[in-house]
């Protein structure tokens, strides 16, 4: 077979259907927007209960985390995500789902090295790089702020 990887790459790209990006984009917008609006609903409700805005915002996020993990356990989150794509990935619910799904999946390898260690296989990098970035920012802020 006389074919270079470059030639084959072209051929393979031609044969491979692209993701239906417009449909994906609209679903991500609607469902992602919906999740954020739901979060806003909780935020407004908590504020109405007399909680200050920052605290209400934190509680709204925690409420979404709770709902996400509930839906993950009930085997529903992945079905929604199949349609929503980034719409369920980008909100805090996606972060929660990645932890909960890993915890559920790897429980069979035990509570410590299965569930405990592997809970972070997807969410871990978010914490590692998020916190590291915040420390770098902190250093800059401390010096120049």
């Amino acid at each position: 077979m006389n074919m270079s990887p470059e030639e084959y790459d072209k051929l393979a790209k031609k044969a491979s259907p692209n993701s239906p990006f417009l449909k994906n984009l609209i679903s991500a917008f609607l469902i992602g927007g919906g999740i954020c609006a739901l979060g806003q609903g909780f935020l407004l409700w908590y504020q109405r209960l007399g909680i200050d805005r920052d605290t209400a915002s934190a509680w709204a996020s925690i409420t979404l985390v709770f709902l996400s993990i509930l839906l993950t356990g009930l085997d529903l989150y992945d079905s929604i995500a199949k349609v929503a794509g980034a719409g369920t990935l980008v909100p805090i619910t996606g972060f929660a789902n990645s932890m909960s799904s890993a915890a559920i999946e790897f429980k069979s390898e035990g509570w410590v090295l299965g569930l405990g260690a592997k809970m972070f296989i997807i969410a871990g990098p978010v914490i590692v790089y998020g916190v590291s970035a915040s420390v770098i920012y902190g250093i800059l802020y401390y010096i120049f702020g």
């Binding site: 259907p17 239906p20 997807i122």
Partner: peptide, 13 residues
Amino acid sequence: RFPLEYGGQRTPT
């Protein structure tokens, strides 16, 4: 790949 309950999207390929 991923845990089964993980919300991912499969590509058409």
